[in-house]
Simulated assay, not measured.
Amino acid sequence: MSLKGKTLFITGASRGIGREIALKAAQDGANIVIAAKSAEEHPKLGGSIYTVAKEVEEAGGQALAIQLDVRDQDAVAIAMKQAAEHFGGIDILINNAGAIKLSGVELLDPNRFDLMYQINTRAVLVCSQAALPYLKNSENPHILSLSPPLNLDEKWFASYAPYTITKYGMSMLTIGMNQEFSNYGVSVNSLWPRTIIATAAIEFSLGGKQLFNQARKPNIMADAAYEILTSQKRAITGRLIIDEEILRESGVTDFSEYRYAESEEQLMVDLFVKE
């Protein structure tokens, strides 16, 4: 199975996991739409749609960089049309863009909740809706959202219910769209890491770069996504998948290569994952 010639529309692909998935697919010769807000490199976070586009082409893929705010439904529709016209269609949508603020209800600015809801939950609806007309014409269409299993343990709500709600909303849309889009042959899944991943979100939202000693590299998520996206005819669909689980299903037993740093510290289990 290969992604050669397939067109992937990836939101938030200017860095982190989105970038890693783009580069993995590019190695097959895929067409990658890098859709993100960052037209210029962020002074702290690095990366832009144009730097990733160059990396995609160097890795063997074709790239189209589109500056996009996923909160703008009109801009999303235009971007999907542009991507489909440029590459002759869209085969895969990856809802990777995300916003995080680990705060409880008492101290959270409601505008920040709006931001998380719009970039997390609402964007999955908007982007999936805009991509669907093109996915219907694909031989093996996929929607993959980066969202967690639905773990209703109260500890995930006690300190940061607003963020939890917006991420669980993405996963509930996965469950719903899997049923709704089944007649169109679209595989719809969510993917989430078992451990924290060495990304800017961890560095700036969860406690600093020292946590990288307990993290895995983003390429574990790219490899897991690849297993899902190369599956055929809804063989994998309607699932809220953990990266390590899908890789074990594909035969991987040694995960040491994914460790970010040589460290004796125990890997930190990510939010929403049962230990």
Results as ranks from 00 to 15, higher is better:
Val105Asn: 12
Ile32Gly: 00
Ala53Pro: 04
Gln27Met: 12
Glu58Pro: 04
Ile66Val: 14
Leu64Thr: 03
Leu45Pro: 00
Val52Phe: 03
Gly98His: 03
Ile34Asn: 01
Ala30Ile: 04
Asn96Glu: 00
Gly88Asp: 05
Ala83Val: 07
Gln67Tyr: 05
Arg71Ala: 13
Gly47Met: 09
His86Pro: 07
Tyr50Pro: 01
Ile92Pro: 11
His42Val: 01
Ala83Arg: 08
Ala84Glu: 10
Ile94Cys: 12
Val76Met: 08
Glu106Asp: 10
Val76Glu: 05
Lys101Cys: 08
Leu64Pro: 02
Val76Lys: 12
Asn96Met: 00
Phe87Leu: 06
Lys81Gly: 02
Gly46Trp: 06
Asn95Gln: 01
Gln27Pro: 01
Ala25Val: 04
Ser48His: 09
His42Glu: 08
Ala59Asp: 04
Glu55Ala: 14
Asn31Gln: 11
Asn31Trp: 03
Gly47Thr: 07
Lys54Met: 02
Leu68Ala: 03
Ala63Met: 05
Asp72Pro: 12
Asp72Ser: 12
Ala35Glu: 09
Lys37Ile: 14
Thr51Arg: 08
Val33Lys: 00
Asp74Gly: 09
Lys101Tyr: 07
Gln82His: 10
Asp74Phe: 07
Asp72Lys: 08
Val56Trp: 02
Ala53Phe: 02
Gln67Ala: 14
Ala30Pro: 10
Gln62Gly: 09
Asn96Lys: 00
Val33Ala: 00
Ile92Thr: 13
Ile94Phe: 01
Lys24Ala: 13
Gly29Met: 05
Leu68Trp: 08
Glu106Ile: 10
Gly29Ala: 07
Glu55Gly: 05
Phe87His: 09
Gln73Leu: 04
Ala83Trp: 04
Gly47Leu: 08
Ile78Cys: 04
Ser48Pro: 13
His42Ser: 09
Asn96Pro: 04
Ile92His: 07
His42Ile: 02
Gly29Asn: 06
Lys24Val: 05
Gln62Lys: 15
Ile94Lys: 01
Val70Gln: 12
Ala26Tyr: 04
Asn96Tyr: 01
Ile100Phe: 13
Lys44Leu: 14
Val33Gly: 00
Ala26Leu: 09
Gln27Lys: 15
Ala84Gly: 15
Ser48Trp: 13
Ala83Glu: 01
Lys37Glu: 12
Ala79Pro: 02
Glu41Ala: 14
Val56Met: 03
Asp91Asn: 10
Asp91Ser: 00
Gly104Cys: 08
Ser103Ile: 09
Glu106Cys: 02
Leu68Val: 06
Ser38Val: 01
Arg71Val: 02
Phe87Ala: 03
Ser48Arg: 11
Ser48Leu: 10
Gly89Trp: 00
Lys44Asn: 11
Ala39Val: 13
Ala53Asp: 03
Asn95Cys: 13
Ile92Ala: 07
Glu41Leu: 04
Ser103Gln: 15
Gly61Phe: 10
Ala84Gln: 08
Leu45Phe: 13
Asp74Val: 09
Gly104Val: 10
Gly61Val: 09
Asn31Asp: 11
Val56Thr: 05
